[in-house]
Amino acid sequence: MENRPRILLADDETAITSNLAPFLERAGFHVHVASDGQSALEQIAQYSPELVVLDVLMPRMDGREVLRRLRQAGNWTPVLLLTQVGEAAERAMALEEGADDYLNKPFDPQELSARIRAVLRRARPGQPSLASAWRLSCGSDDPARPPLLLDRRARRASLGDAALALTPKAFALLEYLMTHPDEMLTRERLLDAVWGWDYPAGTRTVDTRMAELRRLLQDNAENPVYIETTPGEGYRFVGRVQPLP
């Protein structure tokens, strides 16, 4: 009985799949390969993989169309998109269409396997992922603390009934944190995902915004309810996040 996670790797560049597949095999996954969108869909139906790594630009059906068809059919297999064009709007759209995460080419293969693991850990079989839920909530053990609510469509966050006055950037940061709970997020990755650039000098920017967010969330960095700092590494959202209907 095979107990390694089964993943499908769909990319039309054989130079990529023929090198990435053995790498991912050694990283502990059972890998199927598809070279276009049509065959990706067929293989998903055939093998029902636990996760799909999907290139956006593919012949016969691009990655976004594959994703759209999957989700329309109520298939919530986690999808990690390999974005090609890499435009901010495109990435935002990818997440809205139900991708669980994305990675810009060219990426570090180690980063890919770390992301796959993180997405698999978060995945709840057969259910939509946090990344595709419009409303999220995060409770805490402290009964005095009201739950943190995030309405992604309305771009609003609140602690119980009290609305939080977040700047658009702070909201986007909180949104990324809450859709990637329990994952070590480096400053570089946050910059790339939330700000769209990750120039070395920018890491300070993340710290500034994180401090702003903590102040509004009344979160204590020493004993955090929501955002934990790991010195020299990055941030981790430690609250228990639930999708709301």
């Binding site: 090198n19 990435l20 060219p106 990426f107």
Partner: peptide, 20 residues
């Protein structure tokens, strides 16, 4: 940028295999 991305991705995967 677009044309350089795929070869670079393949190279990094190949190198990661050597490393492994």
């Amino acid at each position: 940028d677009h044309e350089v991305k795929n070869p670079l991705t393949a190279m990094r995967a190949a190198l990661a295999n050597l490393e492994d």
